[in-house]
Design a protein around this nucleic acid. Sequence first.
RNA 1: GGUGAGAUGGGUGAGUGGCUGAAACCACCAGUUUGCUAAACUGACGUACGGGCAACUGUACCGAGGGUUCGAAUCCCUCUCUCACCGCCA
Length: 423
Amino acid sequence: MLTLKQINDNKDEVIRKLARKKFDGKAIIEQVIDLNNKRKNTQVVLDTNLAELNAISKTIGQLMQSGKKEEAEAARAKVAEMKEGNKQLEAEMKQAEEQLNVLLCTIPNLPCDMVPDGCTPEDNKIEKTGGVMPDLGKNALPHWELAKKYDLIDFELGVKISGAGFPVYKGKGARLQRALINFFLDNAREAGYLEIQPPYVVNAASGYGTGQLPDKEGQMYHATQDDLYLIPTAEVPVTNIYRDVILDKKDLPIMNTAYSACFRREAGSYGKDVRGLNRLHQFDKVEIVRIDTPEHSYESLTEMVNYVQTLVEKLELPWRILRLCCGDMSFTSAITFDFEVFSAAQQRWLEVSSVSNFESYQANRLKCRYRTDDKKTELCHTLNGSALALPRIVAALLENNQTPEGIKIPKALIPYTGFEIIN
RNA sequence: GGUGAGAUGGGUGAGUGGCUGAAACCACCAGUUUGCUAAACUGACGUACGGGCAACUGUACCGAGGGUUCGAAUCCCUCUCUCACCGCCA
């Protein structure tokens, strides 16, 4: 969430930036500022009262010890009535704080100045493209047909065991999954990321820390008996490592990577958009996470985008980078670059990565801070990106590399798969 | 699942009603000494929200929430978590 300081100091700018994100913040920002002022005024009175009470209590102790009973009793009576008023003030403080918190949670992050205007995916800006579009001729098969033909993935079997959106990978299909995970993790490690193996279920505090809760509760599977949530991405457990932590500046940027299975309920969509591997309830992903100083976070973002680019290049897929417009970005993001690869049989671009800088928005909820050179604490910036999500990569690999002889594995991946062709 | 013990500052750990925002030690930071390093010595050393131009200062926080009391880390209640032993088990 935004900080009160951000809102107080730059009210008009905040409202203007929120408007770019199609969020009418005028009323709510005014409300936040009023509420905060009210809270401050109440605190001044309450603190003064408490200071007086503390002083009197101390006096009573001294009077008792020196045996001045009557004076002590008199002071006691005085204190009793003061306390009543304080109860009221305390309740007001608490209420104001709670209301503030609720309001702040409903305000999205501000888009940074480099984010283009716009509302819909059509307004996203194509930043960069690369790779070669394959020419598959007339009889190209979509990946779900290829998966069946070569017995790589069994969607119906998944339905039997779990439900739609839980495919069963078999044989070279399963080995391809494992190869990609290792390939991505090894690359991340070589790029300087520390590998983490996080828990796949998290508590409510973690869900809140990264912003899945309280609003997007429905997106996560919830194990109600133990009140734990299945993670929708490794971002949740990994980022929460740094919840309520004050980092040393010399340890920044923190660079973590983690593989995890990801679980998403995602009710709603149907049809060809969700056919095959395009959208699943369970999928595999390697995530990269960075925690950095505000001064350096945009350099980190560039490095992350460049790193993801190396992955799609090594996989020899046609790719493009989109700079998302204000309206298409997530609630918590300040700027987002999406990576898409072209899936040639479906003839469509598939999103395989989303790299974002959240600036201090997430860190404020997480209370993730670092110590500046002058020993002050300041909120960190958090960033993350997929590197990469497997299913759509697999879809594109299968479709783009199909030949009459079989499906060819890109060179960089062969050491990981142990085979060069699926036939 | 059963039984017992516990939760205090970056760490170890003292503290059973006022002199404790918290001893001591370690770590970290600044300085002195010293060819360098080390050692030794001196000092500083929690977080948040306020007030003040500032020096500085108020309040809250000893797992969380409530209660008793003029006054709670300390007493009472509830919850959460951790550890140990037993049982079960990958």
